[in-house]
């Protein structure tokens, strides 16, 4: 088939292409559709939002039930994955004898100190690099290069330098946290509308005024995105660090359990991580709601 067969004869200038246009005679009135408005939509949406919570829980419950049944039926061996009931009773037991609290507390402290060092460090570096050419030249190249070095690969160096104590673990968390904070905050500062710079000139804002009234507020959304990523990275690195060398913490508990084939203890620890991750996410969301009220749709 040739092209002209497909396309038909070429259209002449001024020719009316009647059969290409749909029938637009006045008798063919368009059918009207009702668009969703508040009244029309409200009952359905209320129902949806009412259902959302229970449905989510139901989903989780369903998974756990299947898991329990599979365990009871012997499809899953207990040494591979303990049944949910066994996990819960082990969790209760670990809580009762204080093992879980001690481990949690040790891990929480490490994450806290890692964040306490890494977050301000990343933020300050980003602000300095974002504000001055010199700062940018000195800092940004290094960070952009280092961010491609896997942090986990650096752990051996940290152990060489800092031994196996707390400092090595905290440093690793701090290091890992710094990058997402830096990269997102720096990008936010870089993308500030240059017209605000001119506005600052016109209203006579000084250097500190610019930082406080323009740069920092404009950087905040990026910083909070970085913070959320940082929280995830922090837990990830911590588990890793604790599994390599530690005598306390959730990661240590996991390694111990592994040695004694206690899959229920491992699952308890993993559940703890999941809960902590959720909690930190809620924390960042709350911060976002608090600080980004000016954004439409919040």
């Amino acid at each position: 088939m040739t092209l002209s067969e497909v396309l038909g004869p070429p259209v002449q200038r001024g020719q009316v292409i009647a059969d290409l246009a749909p029938d637009r005679s006045p008798s063919a009135a368009p059918r009207l559709i009702q668009l969703p408005t508040a009244e029309v939509d409200a009952p359905r949406r209320r129902l949806q939002s009412l259902r959302a919570g229970p449905q989510r829980l139901l989903g989780v419950a369903l998974l756990i039930t299947v898991w329990e049944i599979a365990s009871l039926a012997g499809w899953i061996r207990p040494q591979d994955l303990a049944a949910p009931t066994s996990v819960v009773s082990m969790g209760a037991h670990l809580l009762a004898n204080g093992t879980l609290e001690t481990a949690l507390w040790a891990s929480l402290q490490r994450v806290f100190w890692g964040l306490a060092v890494g977050v301000p460090l990343g933020a300050v570096l980003a602000v300095v690099a974002g504000l001055s050419r010199t700062g940018e030249n000195l800092i940004d190249g290094n960070v952009q290069m280092l961010r491609f070095v896997p942090i986990i690969g650096l752990s051996s160096l940290f152990v060489l330098w800092l031994g196996v104590g707390e400092t090595a673990k905290i440093s690793m968390v701090a290091m890992g946290v710094m990058f997402p904070i830096y990269i997102n905050t720096y990008a936010a500062i870089r993308s500030i509308d240059p017209r605000y710079e001119e506005l600052a000139d016109v209203v006579g804002l000084g250097r500190w005024g610019r930082v406080r009234r323009i740069v920092l507020p404009a950087a905040l959304p990026g910083f909070l995105v970085g913070l959320r990523m940082a929280m995830a990275v922090a837990w990830l690195l911590l588990v890793f660090a604790e599994q390599i060398n530690a005598s306390s913490g959730l990661g240590y508990l996991i390694v111990q359990a592994q040695t004694y084939f206690q899959s229920n203890v491992i699952v308890v620890c993993l559940a703890c991580y999941a809960i902590l991750g959720l909690l930190t996410d809620v924390l960042v969301r709350t911060l976002e709601r608090l600080f980004l009220r000016w954004q439409p749709g919040r």
Binding site: R195, Y196, L199, A200, V202, V203, G204, L205, G209, R213, I214, P217, A218, L220, W294, Q295
Partner: peptide, 25 residues
């Protein structure tokens, strides 16, 4: 003492209306 009004209002979105008015004062 000079002031400029642009075609776009150029308000800082993260500052409330009054803070925008007194910016730099």
């Amino acid at each position: 003492q000079r002031s400029v009004v642009y075609q776009d209002p150029r308000l800082l979105p993260w500052a409330r209306v009054l803070s925008n008015v007194v910016l730099g004062l």
